[in-house]
């Protein structure tokens, strides 16, 4: 078991969180949408696993490389 950290690839604002803690996700599933440079940037899971923590909430401003969530694989 290892915690896979999902970090934000860019600075922007969280506009949608598409998963909940405890939810299992597969590679390619939509995790979160970040608005940056006036675009909705969809962040997809790179792994199969279970979401164990979500570190941000909707409308929160975030910085590049901020931890968004952890997925246990």
């Amino acid at each position: 078991m290892a915690g896979h950290q999902v970090n934000s690839p860019m600075t922007g604002q969280v506009i949608e969180i598409s998963v909940e803690v405890g939810q299992s996700v597969s590679e390619g599933d939509l995790l979160i949408v970040i608005e940056s440079m006036k675009m909705e940037n969809e962040i997809f899971s790179e792994v199969n696993g279970t979401v164990t923590s979500i570190e941000v909430e909707e409308d929160r401003n975030i910085s590049e490389e901020n931890l968004l969530m952890t997925i246990e694989i």
């Binding site: 860019m10 940056s36 440079m37 675009m39 940037n41 969809e42």
Partner: peptide, 8 residues
């Protein structure tokens, strides 16, 4: 690539 940093 608009999917990455909006292509900026």
């Amino acid at each position: 690539d608009p999917m990455f940093m909006a292509g900026a």
